[in-house]
């Protein structure tokens, strides 16, 4: 094989590999991204319908109610709140008054069905998304007062 052909084969192979990888990446990214939405945005109807997304904020005090393995609670950004149901086992640090992030879909009746509730691993840690939601809500309230 001539060196020129060899170079073509190597470059062609490399390009093909990168092409296939890019196709895989784009395809997989498209179907596996979850947007983050604050409780206020959910209540205002800005949440993506029929798609998986995440909400974050604080677990409202006194809102946790267990029904065997199904847990009902509310996630609040201190301004608005969204009722959430989750069936299964919650992470150890899931507690009232603490930050939490849930992933799932919104139902037509406005409740959120979570397929996953994210753990945090430190009592003093606040998931950045939960913090973001609370910050947004408090900023909005300040603007209204002014």
């Amino acid at each position: 094989m001539k060196p020129r052909h060899k170079r073509f084969a190597l470059i062609g192979g490399g390009l093909a590999a990168i092409g296939i990888a890019s196709a895989l990446v784009l395809n997989a990214l498209d179907s596996n991204i979850a947007f983050f939405v604050t409780p206020t945005e959910v209540v205002e109807g800005k949440a993506p319908q029929g798609k998986i997304f995440r909400i974050g904020g604080m677990v409202k005090e006194g809102s946790i109610r267990r029904d065997n393995l199904t847990v009902h609670f509310a996630i609040t950004d201190t301004a608005r709140e969204v009722p959430v149901t989750y069936t299964g086992i919650l992470p150890d640090l899931f507690q009232e008054g603490k930050g939490a992030v849930a992933q799932g879909r919104i139902n037509p009746d406005g409740t959120f069905s979570a397929t996953e509730v994210l753990a945090k691993h430190d009592e003093n840690y606040m998931p950045p998304e939960a913090q973001h939601a609370v910050d947004q809500a408090q900023k909005a309230q300040k603007t209204i007062k002014q």
Partner: peptide, 28 residues
């Protein structure tokens, strides 16, 4: 690397906060 940094990149360009789930990584 792309899957790990994608949420940071999108957030930096004002695309909102997103997360990339494990199915992405498995599929790729």
């Amino acid at each position: 690397l792309l899957g790990t940094l994608y949420p940071l990149i999108v957030d930096a360009f004002g695309g909102g906060k997103i997360s990339v789930g494990p199915p992405y990584f498995n599929a790729v």
